[in-house]
Write a protein that binds this DNA or RNA. Structure first.
Lengths: 324, 324
DNA sequence: GTCTGCATTGCAATCGATTTCTCCTTATGC
DNA sequence: GCATAAGGAGAAATCGATTGCAATGCAGAC
């Protein structure tokens, strides 16, 4: 079923059908109605490949996600996808994995699909490989990075201000009289580096000794690191780089027979669904995933419709105080 | 940059370049090398729209997910996407929302993109609207439904045997001496209907009085429903249609001052990450999301490569006993 | 020396939709 | 009643890659 089949049945030419489909002017009301009739009859929809070929774009947006185990990223991807779809753009979503070389190859893949724009979710895309691949294969398409920065003429960033967010967490704990505040770090990403900086600044401001403990970023990792610490050290405050780590720590603390929050306060980061389910409910720094994701989509749509939004938008996080 | 640009630079015709790119035979080793050189020089990748136009397919697979709030679905989607990508297929993932009419329109969208196959995630796609849309717009492409059934010549199903899974949950509770076992239902889907059947069968077998309480399928819903029940009724076992409901119930019980599992046992369904984080850790029926999703991808790939897998594959769930 | 045959390579049509340019019809003004 | 303008519709080129078929060249056979 092509426009010519439609054309034949309606007794017109292909060009006319095309014009009707695309709402182009210069068609008489009667022909338009006749063609629309046939269009409806077959519930026709045009071949997007052919369309893309002549219009030189696919009407698609590429979304790259590095780590699917991170609920945070996938949720962001879906929010963005939904928003773009409402605006009439299809999205291709790819899991790129963590390897920088791999990530760059996905840029090429998107380029060959003639995407109109790209959204990169997570700071782990901010590498030279990815940046180079973009300037080679997609020098003219807008690229929006969620929670990361890239120095490219066609790149835009929307970031959560994690540094000051975590600093505020330290202030909060300190105002609660906590002084031995440990930071449970996650995997090595620019985002986690910003959080670490915020922690160090906060501790410095409060004239406290900082202590950063590495973990693998998982629930188990948080549990393990916390258990080890509780054996020897006195601690009264914990900040986890993500909620999952904090949840693991919470569990370790309650297994150790200490009480939360009277003995130890805990704060997680991201305000994920996990925070609500922990027992006691986890206090968490909300990095405003919804606003951030929505804003990414808005920035992209703005560029695509000829606007020129800010190169870097910053979303302030907010501490959600619960029971820990 | 087109194959003709490459061709000019290599001093050959476009056809030759095309043949080299696609590894077609009948090209001398020397020309092939020369063309490959230029290809590499520009890191060229062909326009997929043009390719799709002549080959009459896009090399893409459509994945439809109804509810993005359900972590279970999105995780399945990602597992499938990854597996398909490894096999060389790109995926377009769409959130369809719950409305049947909307869902059907996405089928049309996929058809216009000339997808090679479709994966529908969740039983909520098993409606007449969707089924009709498939037989009109995609009568020849394989369609795989994860955890649902559809009666169509080109449809394949991979389902978790939730009915017997939930029946086994009842048996488990009953073997623990529980007799007042409540089932907290979720939203109205074929999948939840199967779970309900399993519960009823299990209760019948154990000669116990069934009691099904509706909820909205959320953590809050489970909490609310359970709180209400605890005010008046004596209960010693709970099964939640999904982990989130069970987690809410768990919280309600501990808020009510009862102890788990000595006073009341709880079982969730899906064995999601939430189960591990609950305190105490939630016993849950693992519906084997990973195996199910992988199997969906396998079935699709099998059909696409000319195989004819079973129309319906069933994955037996497994009870993961934790602390509740 | 011509002819057959195979290996390479190029030409041109094709996929389906868009768009420019041209032609034709009809209405309007004189 | 005729000229002209304007609006409606079609013919054909185009997007970039693929592919059947034709053409070329070269080697070996007679």
């Amino acid at each position: 079923m092509t426009i010519y089949d439609i054309a034949k049945e309606a007794g017109v030419s292909g060009s006319t059908v095309s014009r009707v489909i695309n709402g182009r002017p210069g068609i008489s009301e009667s022909t338009r109605r006749r063609v629309e009739e046939v269009l409806r009859k077959y519930d026709y929809s045009p071949d997007e490949a052919a369309r893309g070929l002549v219009s030189r774009n696919s009407g698609m947006i590429g979304i790259l996600v590095s780590d699917i185990r991170n609920l945070h990223y996938t949720e962001g991807a879906y929010i963005i996808e939904k928003k773009l779809l409402e605006a009439g753009f299809c999205s291709i979503i790819f899991n790129t994995g963590e390897e920088p070389g791999e990530k760059a190859s996905y840029i090429k893949l998107l380029a060959s699909r003639r995407v109109k724009g790209v959204v990169l979710i997570g700071s782990s895309f901010c590498t030279d490989e990815v940046s180079d691949a973009i300037s080679v294969h997609l020098p003219d398409s807008p690229v929006v990075i969620a929670n990361g920065r890239m120095d490219l003429p066609n790149a835009y960033s929307v970031v959560a201000d994690e540094e000051s967010g975590v600093r505020d967490c330290v202030r909060h704990l300190s105002s609660l009289g906590r002084s031995r505040i440990v930071y449970l770090d996650g995997r090595d990403t620019p985002s986690n580096a910003a959080k670490r900086r915020g922690y160090l600044i906060g501790m410095e401001e409060a004239c406290l000794d900082p202590r950063i403990v590495p973990t693998d970023g998982s629930y188990g990792g948080g549990l393990e690191a916390m258990s080890a610490m509780l054996k020897s050290d006195r601690i009264d405050g914990v900040i986890g780089a993500v909620d999952l780590i904090a949840a693991g720590a919470e569990r370790a603390i309650s297994d150790h027979g200490l009480s939360i929050p009277s003995d130890i306060s805990i704060i997680g980061i991201d305000n994920s669904p996990f925070a609500e389910i922990c027992n006691p409910r986890l206090t968490s720094l909300d990095t405003r995933l919804f606003e951030l994701s929505t804003s990414c989509a808005d920035v992209l749509l703005s560029v695509l419709s000829g606007g020129s939004p800010e190169r870097v938008a910053s979303i302030p996080p907010a501490l959600v105080v619960r029971e820990t």
